[in-house]
């Protein structure tokens, strides 16, 4: 217990959380700002370079960095004794800090849920990793696209809440 609450260990867990989070949100923004808008401009015969090589690799790092971010973040909140207060949005302790970080945590948890249970299962169909009819592929593409866009939208207030909890004057 004393080892886990050692200030250096607390810092080290925060570093792992931010490191994983940069990879996760960096790849989320790559999908939304670069890959998805770029796909219609790529000639059909060159599209497999993205769908067979780049996207599966990007999705691998995307979903595992999402899980890593959540795990280190939850460990951090537990180490700093605000996990329960933050997940109940600060109402238990009347804490603005815990409400702010709690909003960020819930947005991050919703985003990670979207990654693992909506985006990834649908991407497996659109990329041909699992068998699907053309109609199923079209529906999966739409669902994955919207979940990814929702995550991009949530990443803006999530980061504001996470950084703001400790660094807002």
């Amino acid at each position: 217990m004393s080892f886990l609450s050692d200030p250096y260990i607390v810092f080290f867990v925060r570093w792992l959380h931010v490191l994983s989070g940069i990879m996760w949100i960096g790849l989320l923004w790559y999908f939304n700002f670069v890959q998805t808008p770029g796909m219609p401009k790529i000639p059909d015969e060159q599209k497999p370079a993205i769908t067979k090589v780049i996207a599966p690799s990007a999705l691998f790092w995307f979903r595992w960095s999402a899980l890593s971010t959540i795990i280190w973040g939850l460990i951090q909140a537990w180490q700093l004794h605000y996990i329960q207060s933050a997940l109940t949005l600060g109402f238990l302790t009347q804490s603005a800090h815990d409400m702010r970080i709690g909003f960020g945590m819930w947005m991050g948890l919703i985003m990670a849920f979207n990654v693992w249970f909506i985006i990834w299962p649908n991407q497996k169909k659109t990329l041909g990793i699992v068998q699907a009819t053309p109609e199923e592929k079209a529906r999966a593409g739409r669902a994955g696209f919207l979940a990814s866009r929702i995550n991009t939208m949530l990443s803006i207030p999530m980061l504001y809440a996470m950084v703001g909890a400790s660094h807002m004057a």
């Binding site: 409400m99 866009r149 939208m153 207030p157 703001g164």
Partner: peptide, 30 residues
């Protein structure tokens, strides 16, 4: 009206609106 999440601009504007709402909630709750 089309879904704002259809475009990147709509997505970013919605994200900023949620940011402002969350900030106001935190500022004025306690």
């Amino acid at each position: 009206m089309s879904n704002p999440l259809q475009t990147l601009q709509g997505t970013i504007i919605l994200g900023i609106v949620i940011t402002v709402v969350v900030d106001l909630i935190v500022r004025y709750t306690f």
